[in-house]
Computed example of a mutant assay.
Amino acid sequence: MTTVVPVSEAVREATAALTRAQVDSARSDALVLAAHVLGVPRSRLVLVAGFTPAALAEFRRLVADRARRVPLQHLTGVAGFGRLELAVGPGVFVPRPETELLAQWALTVGGALAVDLASGSGALALALAHGSPATRVVAVERSPAAVAWLRRNAAARAAAGDRPIEVVVGDATDPRVLAEFDGTVDLVVSNPPYVPEPSPGDGPPPEVADHDPPEAVFAGPDGLAVIRPLAARAAALLRPGGWFGLEHDETQPPALPALLSPWFAEIAIHRDLTGRPRYVTARRVAD
């Protein structure tokens, strides 16, 4: 007779292991991994009899990986973003919940043509296509690894019935990329690399430092090395009156008005759910 280990017992053991590894969301991550292995929604774990030996071995393997600070989303292969579930893994930045606020703002703006610069997994572009079917959405990404994830997610969302987005491979700051759209875009959004290069011994958590692509995270000593040319590129793409929404580091708001004011007005800093300044919005003025 096959021995079945109760879910509660396995999750308790996993939570203890993840707590020892200093994973902040130890119990939550243990529950997510249990649901992933058992093939049920987390809310239905209480209805599962337990883990078979094979399932328990797989669960413990994933827990050990998480204890080594492999991102939870790499282990499950998906990241939730608003109402979407996006495929993620090595080579692409894992979308964060705080970026959902920028996506929600973008949906209030809408427009006929929107561009997502430095799209990564496609989170912002696909959220726009899902929530605003009348909007034509173009996503720009240069990393070959990230483009593979972007195309995969775009195909999956199109198959689910969302309006297909257009994927353009190129440097989001290059004036030649999307030059044919200059002066016609209604909305530009971006979650670019913006984290200042860390001092020795003062880096981000292992999930970021060891697994997110560095070129998708860090951007020079002040974190603005990409934002500066990106703002200029957004300004060139936008029509007068068009909107720009940009995620940024919490240390950067003092620099943003001066950086954006050559092209933009109505510059506003917005806070995330923790109260930290997280994204800026601005409206293109006529030249």
Rank of each mutant, 00 (worst) to 15 (best):
L187R: 02
A148I: 02
P198Y: 01
P205V: 12
V167D: 06
A155E: 14
G161Q: 09
F181Q: 12
W149L: 02
P200F: 00
V168P: 09
P200E: 00
P213Q: 12
W149D: 00
P204S: 13
V147E: 05
E166N: 10
D210C: 11
D212C: 06
W149F: 09
W149Q: 02
G170F: 03
V167N: 09
P213V: 09
D162Q: 08
P206R: 15
R157N: 07
L187I: 05
N153C: 08
E180M: 08
H211M: 04
R163F: 05
P175F: 10
V195A: 11
V169F: 03
D162S: 14
V147Y: 03
E215F: 02
E197M: 06
P144I: 07
P214R: 05
P193M: 13
P206S: 11
S199L: 15
D174I: 02
P200G: 05
A179H: 07
V168F: 08
P175E: 02
Y194W: 04
P192K: 12
Y194H: 07
Y194I: 04
E197D: 13
A154Q: 04
R157S: 13
V167H: 09
V177K: 09
E207R: 13
R151G: 11
P192N: 07
G183C: 10
V177C: 13
A159Q: 14
V217S: 04
V188K: 05
P204N: 11
D186W: 01
F181A: 15
P206Y: 03
D171I: 01
D162L: 08
A179N: 02
V195T: 10
A179P: 00
P175N: 08
P205A: 13
L150I: 01
P198L: 09
F181M: 14
T184A: 15
P204R: 15
V208C: 06
V195N: 04
V189C: 09
E197Q: 11
V189Y: 01
V147S: 04
P204A: 15
D171L: 07
D182C: 15
Y194Q: 05
R157Y: 11
F218D: 01
R151W: 06
A145D: 14
A216F: 01
P198E: 03
D212Y: 00
S190F: 06
P196L: 10
R176Q: 14
